[in-house]
Amino acid sequence: MCQAIVDTVTAHASGRQVRRVTVRIGHLRQVVPDSLSFAWEVLTEGTELAGSELVVEHVPAVVECAACGERTTLDWPVLVCAACGAVDVRLVSGEEFQIASMDVAEEVP
């Protein structure tokens, strides 16, 4: 997983110095932020990304209920509407697994 981040960031950086990378991870993804940060340090060591910071942005799991129309946030991986208890819900967010942005050293114009 972390190697995918390293590869994508290296491609987008195209030689620019990367200082910070922000990834967006949904609540329903099986990703442990601390493990990801550790893997980031190990995988970037000795590469052009060495010393860069990995920021994990957590995206809450939000469902929209087909019965009552409410949008509610889930803590538990059980897909039910927190407002009315209906199970016919559509997932609005929570499955993200995305590189949001990266901060690179400014280029000289």
Partner: peptide, 14 residues
């Protein structure tokens, strides 16, 4: 230059 530039990537890791 010591300025930092934010680059939007928005790429799905999968």
């Amino acid at each position: 230059e010591s300025g930092t530039v934010r680059v939007e990537v928005l790429e799905n890791l999968l």
